[in-house]
Computed example of a mutant assay.
Amino acid sequence: MIDARVNVSIVSHPKTKKLKRKLGDSGPWSLICLFLWAAANRSDGKLTGMTAEDVELAVDWAGDDGAFVATLVAVGFLDGEDGNYSIHDWAEHNPWSAGAAARSEKARWIALCKHHGRERAAETMPAYADRLLSSATSTPEADDSMRVAENSCAPSPSPSPSPLPSAPPSSAAVASAEPTSDPTKGRKTTFKVWLTDIRASGQKAVSGYQPVWDYAEQVGIPAEWIELAWICFRERYTNDEKANLKRYADWRRVFLRAVKEGWMGVWSWSDRDESYRLTTIGMQALKAFEGQAGAQ
């Protein structure tokens, strides 16, 4: 099912009121029809190649020719000009719809990798493979992306600290970040002890552990969701009465297993969308993280 988001305040928004004043009740209704049509046919909100007449035909506008589009431009619901229109701030208000093409492309890549291997997938989708390579090799060595309370790189411009990585570390970064020795490896310790020792030794907890990122890329789990899994993992083995007594010799491998087996329940696979989606637990972790970052 394809859908689109409409903010509950749209009825009282000044733009909508102006649209109604100029075009009557049919103006706002046709605007909603345009949103729905775009979600189904132009999921990125860009109406490239469409004239004003094309736009009005798409929503069955029955008023004066050109009036609907001209008014949308005038009040600010539509940007651009004839043949190059776009719905104003579409990606911001409809991020799920705006990302439909990217999700479809990613799903195809995952399916190809699963059934034919990466080399064949790269041959079939060379442009996508090039973008993945470019993203991986251009990512600078990040600070420990697995330290929630400490400063690190944000995936988008933000005044608050954000440890969510926008892409797995590059191979060069991993080579320098990968710990040469784990001060606790070989002896079983609790998570608290392990994390304390790791930090005391100047090493990174998980961000330099390449197997996690390799697995995430292989199966198509977004890198930032690995961070959410780490937040839940750290919370469980730090504060849970039973879990904080667990002892393991290699906590990095334990986290990798948690990611592979979905222990944290952060994401689930959607057959309908052929991609992963955040679960309620994942959304709660995201909201908690955003709240924590915003308070800093």
Rank of each mutant, 00 (worst) to 15 (best):
Y215A: 06
F233N: 08
M283T: 09
L228W: 07
I231H: 15
W267K: 01
A258R: 07
I231P: 00
W267C: 04
S268W: 02
L256G: 03
R253V: 05
L228R: 11
M283H: 15
W230K: 01
R257E: 01
A229D: 13
N244M: 15
S268Q: 13
L245P: 01
Q284Y: 05
E241A: 14
I231D: 12
I281S: 08
I281Y: 01
S270Y: 11
I231E: 09
R257T: 04
V212P: 00
E235I: 00
A216P: 02
A223T: 14
E241H: 07
S268P: 01
K246L: 15
D240P: 09
M264F: 06
G265F: 03
W213Y: 12
G262D: 08
W230G: 00
S270R: 11
F233R: 06
W225C: 00
R253Y: 02
T238N: 10
D250P: 02
Y237P: 02
R247K: 14
W251A: 01
E217L: 10
K260I: 13
V219F: 02
L278F: 01
A243P: 06
W251H: 03
R234T: 12
K246Y: 11
E224A: 05
A216N: 03
E224F: 07
M283N: 15
C232A: 14
A249H: 10
W269H: 12
W213D: 04
D240I: 12
D214P: 00
K246N: 13
F255V: 08
I221D: 08
E235H: 08
S270D: 14
Y276P: 02
R253P: 00
N244D: 12
D273I: 12
R247F: 03
A223V: 10
R277I: 11
W251D: 01
E217C: 04
A216I: 09
K242T: 15
R277H: 05
A216S: 11
E227C: 10
W213T: 03
E235T: 03
I281E: 09
M283C: 14
N239W: 05
L245V: 11
Y248R: 14
I231A: 06
T279P: 03
W225P: 00
P222L: 10
Y215L: 13
R253S: 11
F233D: 07
W263S: 08
A258K: 05
E241K: 13
W269K: 08
V219I: 15
Q218T: 14
A243Q: 08
E224G: 04
E217Q: 12
C232Q: 13
D273S: 12
D271W: 02
I281L: 10
R257P: 00
D250R: 10
L278M: 04
S275E: 14
G262W: 03
D271Q: 09
R252M: 06
E274W: 04
M264E: 15
P222Q: 14
E217F: 04
T238Y: 08
L278V: 02
Q284P: 01
I221E: 10
K242Y: 07
D271R: 09
R234Q: 15
T238L: 14
L278W: 02
E224Q: 05
V254Y: 01
R272H: 07
D271T: 09
Y215N: 06
L256P: 02
V219M: 07
L245R: 15
I221A: 11
S268V: 08
R252E: 09
W269A: 12
T238P: 06
A285V: 11
L228T: 07
